[in-house]
């Protein structure tokens, strides 16, 4: 039975790592800061959650602590990416020429 749990855990770890890897690829490929935030900080959310879940399957006695890490991540991740995006916009940071609409700039004149 323990080997079954180990197997599920290992599969989840592989899936999680795949998403983390894709997040890294996105970080390199995306054209401007906003899109990099999208790829770099957010595909990693699911990647990290799956990794934590995988570890919970392999070490069931760590479950509580892993749950705390997951909750902490779910609360801090959106706030930090939001603050970064806002700071960049307020300072007129780089924007890819592909960006065809910017309602915030229209409204605030920046």
């Amino acid at each position: 039975m323990a080997t079954m749990l180990d197997l599920i855990g290992a599969l989840l770890l592989v899936c999680g790592t795949a998403f983390l890897f894709l997040g890294g690829v996105g970080l390199v490929r995306m054209p401007d800061t906003y899109n990099r935030i999208q790829a770099g900080t957010k595909t990693t959310t699911l990647g990290t959650l799956l990794t934590l879940l995988g570890v919970a399957f392999i070490h069931p006695d760590w479950s509580f602590k892993l749950l705390l890490i997951a909750i902490f991540l779910l609360f801090t991740n959106p706030l930090s990416s939001q603050i970064m995006a806002r700071a960049i916009h307020r300072n007129g940071g780089d924007q890819s020429p592909l960006t065809h609409i910017d309602r915030l700039a229209e409204d605030k004149g920046r």
Partner: peptide, 24 residues
């Protein structure tokens, strides 16, 4: 999960089919 998979598809497709913008 759904949107993660969608974004992962965008990231790995060679043409990088993005159409970014800020909506209200």
């Amino acid at each position: 999960v759904k949107s993660n998979i969608r974004l992962a598809q965008i990231v790995i497709s060679p043409s990088l089919p993005i159409n970014p913008g800020i909506v209200k």
